[in-house]
């Protein structure tokens, strides 16, 4: 789909020098990046919930994420797109430190959540993951009952004082995930007996049951049929009112439908960021354009 597979850094950098409407903010970004900025478009947002600067990820020798800086806004959906293997999942997993589980993974740079570095020694990972929920590409419900799946998070975090409150949390979470009507009579049945789309919505319900501030979604619809996909997209749209959402997707249409900002990754670098509409109608970087048009055409 791309005519040149290798990334020419200098070309990105030259393309990055672009007049911007919001001049002071662009200058701020320039300052933050120390002049080495290579991403096209404005990576900053006012009052970001996440603020990532010069993030590099290595898997042993392999340099999987190269100097990525990006802000994530509150109450907004950020879509991450890019060819397979470009590091979208890797970057997403940095945001709730799931990369900690991979022994060879090493993260440098700073990722601030509400102004505090999440890779700081004092940061508690458990607390971080309670604030930053994650939905995986493959539905992975616990092999327990539907009820237990949703109740698990509130239970371990002590969010419910009693059984009644727990029931209430389970009910609202399932309702918000659009699953309540389908499962209300079978809460004690195994979650694995649900269909793939239902399982994915259960995973979303499970995530929102702990009331996180950010929800990370790694290709949540890749295994789902169009109807289930549409339901989840509706759900994302609705959740945007309360949460910041980062979604990785291979579907341009999905990115265009659900997100307000889009980030295009290529071989570990963040090539272009911008409002979704602008990215899809008027991509500034040659690679972004090639990717988008390649998919559309």
């Amino acid at each position: 789909m791309n005519d040149s597979a290798t990334l020419d850094e200098s070309r990105i950098r030259s393309a990055g020098a672009e007049p911007h409407a919001d001049a002071p903010r662009a200058r701020a970004a320039e300052r933050l990046a120390g002049g080495e900025f290579s991403t096209v478009g404005d990576v900053t947002v006012p009052d970001p919930i996440f603020s990532c600067r010069h993030v590099n990820v290595y898997y042993g020798e392999k340099h999987a994420i190269r100097d990525v800086s990006i802000d994530i806004a509150r109450q907004e959906v950020l879509a991450m797109i890019g060819p397979s293997g470009c590091g979208k999942s890797t970057f997403l997993r940095c945001l709730n430190r799931m990369n900690d589980t991979i022994p060879s993974a090493r993260v440098t740079g700073s990722i601030l959540l509400d102004g505090r570095d999440i890779y700081d020694r004092k940061q508690d990972v458990v607390q971080l993951r309670a604030r930053v929920g994650m939905v995986f590409q493959k539905p992975n419900p616990f092999p327990k009952s539907i009820y237990e799946n949703v109740a698990y998070g509130p239970r371990i975090h002590g969010l419910a004082a009693d059984r009644v409150e727990l029931d209430e949390i389970v009910h609202t979470s399932l309702q918000r995930a659009g699953l309540w009507d389908e499962v209300k009579d079978r809460l004690s049945q195994p979650a694995t007996s649900l269909s793939g789309g239902q399982q994915q919505r259960l995973c979303i319900a499970r995530t929102i049951a702990v009331n996180p501030e950010v929800i990370l979604m790694d290709e949540p619809c890749s295994a789902l049929d169009p109807i289930a996909t549409a339901r989840i997209e509706d759900l994302i749209d609705e959740l945007r009112a309360t949460y910041a959402i980062v979604i990785v997707t291979h579907s341009m249409q999905q990115a265009a439908r659900v997100s307000q900002r889009t980030a295009y990754f290529h071989l570990g670098s963040l090539v272009e960021v911008g409002p979704t509409e602008r990215i899809f109608t008027n991509p500034r970087h040659r690679l972004t354009e090639a990717y988008i048009t390649g998919r559309f055409g």
Partner: peptide
């Protein structure tokens, strides 16, 4: 035990020992 179960538990904010005791060991 499938790693996805561990990931799921950890991503929910379970501590490593909770992940093992609640999910991995029963399986």
């Amino acid at each position: 035990v499938p790693p996805s179960i561990r990931d799921a538990a950890l991503a929910m904010g379970a501590s490593p020992i909770q992940t093992v005791v609640h999910h991995v060991l029963p399986l």
